[in-house]
Amino acid sequence: MTTHLPTFDYRRPTSLGEAVRLISSGGSSTVVMAGGTDLVPKMKRRQLTPSTVISLSRVTEMQGIRYQDGATTIGSGTLLREVVASRLVPEPLRLAAATVASPHVRNTATIGGNLCLDTRCNYIDMPEGWRIANGHCLKDGGDTCWVAPRQERCWAVHASDVSPIAIAMHTNVRLVSETGERIIPLEDLYANDGINNLTKRRDELLVELKIPSIEMRASYYKLRRRGAIDFALVGAAASFALEEAGSAEDVRIVLTGIASAPVRVFEAEQFLVAEGLSPGSIVEAAGIAGSCVRTQDNTDLGSRYRKWMIPVAVQRVLEGLAMNTNERSADRGTD
């Protein structure tokens, strides 16, 4: 006998229009399911017991990758496997997507689901009986965050491997609801709150990502325990938009696995804009990142080690950038 899901009604719209209509007419207990690789385990653990599940599996408008108007557009329903394999997708993003979970998971997981991935924590991603025995935490309907009991908020961690590199690459996302649509920088999709971690409205669907073609270098470094399956202990993405040879006008350093949202390390970014990329400045920028970002004891290996690893991850991703001479362009692929 296998662990089964809570009961729900299953809806399977075949168009975007139908999907957004179903969502806005559905109550607060309606969820959309893309690949389900985040939702299904959560539902099996009864972290979530929706009355209705809207499957996006047949909404073809949300799938596929194309290059148009100076941007790579990736439908949110595109599988991570397809993202990894597509020559249209900039290489740094492909490489980052290839670090998600395991090949099997990437065969059903979508990029949209990855960006909308729920926050994670030692106290919430646990079986139901465990959570009852331990006492439900704030995110789980209780009144205390077990990570930081004296504080009012939930500290669950943003864990996507794709968001940091996508933010570093200036990605925008298109959100569509029954009442209209808007395009926002991906960065603005997130809020640093473990419970309300997405700024989008419940009735908005993330329909696609748009990655502008900017001359830049970008890279992602994921520190993980095992080479597959595991989430990042710390993930760091960095990008350098190149104005003219050697000098950077825009530097981005984005961390995952640390706070409830992707974290941009502005202090280190500004330092590098001023100093340029050199072995010395990389070490210093990494140090700056290490000193201005806090960690909590809420995922694997605890806060002290992950705090130590922030400068290491930042230094490595920057070194990767410095070495990587493949200025990215959207139509280039390696396989």
């Binding site: 646990m126 079986p127 465990w130 325990r225 095992r226 080479g227 597959a228 595991d230």
Partner: peptide, 10 residues
Amino acid sequence: PSLLDYKIPT
């Protein structure tokens, strides 16, 4: 108590 948290080598 899971095979994600209890890490056996891949």
